[in-house]
Simulated assay, not measured.
Amino acid sequence: MSRIGKLPINIPNNVDVNYSESTIKVKGKFGELETKIPDAIEIIHEDNSLKVSLKTDGRDLRSLHGLYRTLINNMIIGVSEQFQLTLILKGVGYRAAVQKNEIVLSLGYSHPVKIEIPKDISVEVLQNTTINLKSCNKELLGLFASNIRAWRRPEPYKGKGILYKDEQIIRKVGKSGK
């Protein structure tokens, strides 16, 4: 049995959890999330907590036990607190701006890069070089941040690119003189 899967999930007072045999819906202050659950996984509601357990045992099912416990926990945290990611643009002339439902990035290309913002994510640009992303869906937030980051990955020689907030870039020396 999974160590993570055995842990109970605490439900805050402002979160409403509804589940049937195949889906679970979580509704809170910041939104509503829904996910499908395999038939072999059972959810037990006790007081202000949920327990995830397996109906049958098998190697493949044991691997899903901890996964679905973590997914449900992330849903509950997301709708009650929201997840936040911060991206930093490092480089001469690198800028970001929000226009309507797009984020416009100047990253040293001959044209501005326009990326459409998904409806579940809120974007805030501070000082032209810091981008704050917030969402209740952790998976969607990480995917959107990686799509932005893919336009200019941090490079090891000058340390330029789009970095996560506390990311450390290990620098390389480069060419040496003869």
Rank of each mutant, 00 (worst) to 15 (best):
N132Q: 13
R59H: 14
F83C: 03
G93P: 05
I77M: 06
K90E: 12
D47I: 12
H111C: 00
T56H: 08
K51G: 01
F83V: 04
N128F: 13
N74W: 09
T70P: 03
P38W: 00
K29N: 04
E155G: 10
V98S: 10
E32H: 00
R152C: 05
L105V: 02
V125M: 09
S22A: 10
V125T: 02
L141V: 05
E102M: 12
V79D: 04
Q82P: 00
I117D: 01
S110A: 13
N128L: 11
I77R: 04
L143K: 14
R95E: 15
E116A: 11
R149P: 00
S49G: 15
Y94L: 08
S146E: 15
V92E: 12
V52K: 07
R69S: 08
N147P: 05
V79A: 10
H45E: 11
S122F: 06
R152S: 03
V52I: 15
D47Y: 14
F83E: 03
R62Y: 14
P154C: 04
I148T: 03
I24G: 02
H45A: 06
H45Q: 09
P38V: 01
K114W: 01
I148N: 03
G93I: 00
R95D: 14
I131W: 00
P118Y: 03
S80R: 01
N73K: 14
L87G: 01
T86E: 14
V113Y: 03
F30L: 03
S135T: 04
I43Q: 01
I88K: 15
L64F: 13
N128H: 13
K138F: 11
P38M: 02
I76A: 04
G142S: 09
Y157R: 14
I43E: 02
V104H: 08
T35A: 15
R152E: 03
S122E: 11
T70H: 10
K27G: 00
D47E: 15
T23M: 13
S63Y: 14
S63F: 15
I117E: 07
I41P: 02
I24Y: 06
K29D: 01
E46Y: 15
L105Q: 06
Q82G: 05
I148L: 11
K138Y: 12
K25D: 15
Q99L: 11
G93F: 05
N132L: 14
A40Q: 11
R62C: 03
S135L: 07
R152T: 01
A97D: 13
I37W: 04
I103P: 02
Q84G: 00
G91L: 07
I103W: 04
K51A: 05
S80Q: 06
N132V: 13
A150D: 08
Q84H: 00
L64A: 14
K29R: 09
V98K: 15
N137R: 12
S80I: 08
Q84C: 05
L67T: 12
E116Y: 05
E46C: 11
I117W: 06
Y68K: 03
G93D: 03
K36T: 11
E124C: 11
E46F: 13
S53R: 12
